[in-house]
């Protein structure tokens, strides 16, 4: 397969603050999910690929060229930044017309591309309203339209589904998949695993500015499923429940919450197995479960766990 993005020892510091360090990445056509908790370095990496930042060390090449010094490359790159950087005094149509004209297209082509982009993100009927009147989700969709209006081969999306309503999340995910099926390369960042999981199997995990893992989602999922989870359980007979739960092989730890004895803090290794066991206990002994919360079911805790395990 053709390599679209290639980095070698790529590093970026903001003064003494680390952005990314020593990244060696190859990205091929299709959708690649860029996953990592907030502050992991995803946006810095995308900005480096989009030629918005100059590497402090190492190199980044896109279609074999340096994006920092090659403006012509932006005929083939579409970039949707995380920041809400839109010309809010313009309408969506004016924004698209203005930025497409910078590509040097003829007027008829500018207009047809504008219409296509507006249609793709469902903003045709609101195209002549000023962007300042848009909701957060509509602004996100406009940013996506601005990135794909010139039909680039590489699309860089930084948290594109952030603030988008559930219906449009599904539609945009389908749009990304259709772009990938047309041979485009998409690099989509997110800190939410299921969001990325819905559109691709290929992911790149970034944490503390470093590539943590690169590969297919099932392998990462396996890591996540075996990582110890914390679960809080509020029941009517906590001591009796505790005694029964100790029989579960998936239970690693159990504590009563100080001053709140009805609240049990559990550490479990295999969530699925533990929940099945818990359900059986609850049904058989007629417990009244008032509340059950998985306190660390998020990417940050998974990363923390993986980092600890790697040490």
């Amino acid at each position: 397969m053709t390599t679209i993005i290639e980095t070698e020892g790529l590093s970026k510091w903001y003064g003494p603050v680390l952005g990314v360090t020593d990244l060696k990445i190859l990205v091929e056509p299709g959708i690649t999910g860029l996953l990592g908790p907030n502050g992991a370095g995803k946006s810095t990496f995308l900005k480096l690929v989009a030629g918005q930042l100059k590497p402090s060390a190492g190199r980044v090449s896109v279609f074999g060229e340096n994006p920092w010094t090659t403006p012509e490359l932006f005929r083939k790159i579409g970039y949707c930044p995380e920041a809400q950087g839109l010309y809010t005094d313009l309408t969506a149509r004016e924004s698209l017309l203005f930025l497409l004209r910078l590509h040097g297209y003829r007027e008829a082509e500018v207009e047809s591309r504008t219409l296509q982009a507006l249609e793709a993100v469902g903003l045709v009927d609101r195209a002549d309203r000023r962007v300042e009147t848009y909701s957060f989700g509509m602004k996100q969709r406009l940013k996506i339209a601005l990135a794909l209006a010139h039909d680039p081969d590489l699309l860089l999306f930084d948290e594109p589904l952030n603030g988008v309503d559930p219906l449009w999340r599904i539609r945009l995910t389908a749009l990304f998949e259709s772009l990938a099926s047309r041979g485009k390369t998409l690099l989509v960042s997110s800190h939410i695993l299921p969001e990325v999981e819905a559109m691709t199997r290929q992911i790149l995990l970034i944490h503390q500015g470093k590539v943590f893992a690169q590969g297919e989602i099932p392998a990462i999922r396996e890591l996540i499923d075996t990582h110890p989870h914390r679960v809080s359980l509020r029941v009517d007979r906590p001591r009796e429940m505790a005694k029964l739960l100790l029989e579960s092989s998936s239970l690693e730890g159990l504590q009563f919450q100080p001053q709140q004895e009805e609240l049990l803090n559990l550490t479990v290794t295999n969530r699925e197995k533990f929940y099945a066991f818990l359900l059986e206990v609850v049904v058989r002994h007629g417990f009244n479960v008032e509340e059950m919360v998985s306190t660390d079911d998020n990417l940050q805790s998974v990363f923390d766990y993986l980092v600890e395990r790697k040490r």
Partner: peptide, 15 residues
């Protein structure tokens, strides 16, 4: 400050 710079600088035009 309005974070619109990247919209401009990711176009095929020299800065």
């Amino acid at each position: 400050e309005e974070k619109t710079l990247s919209s401009l600088t990711c176009r095929p035009v020299s800065k």
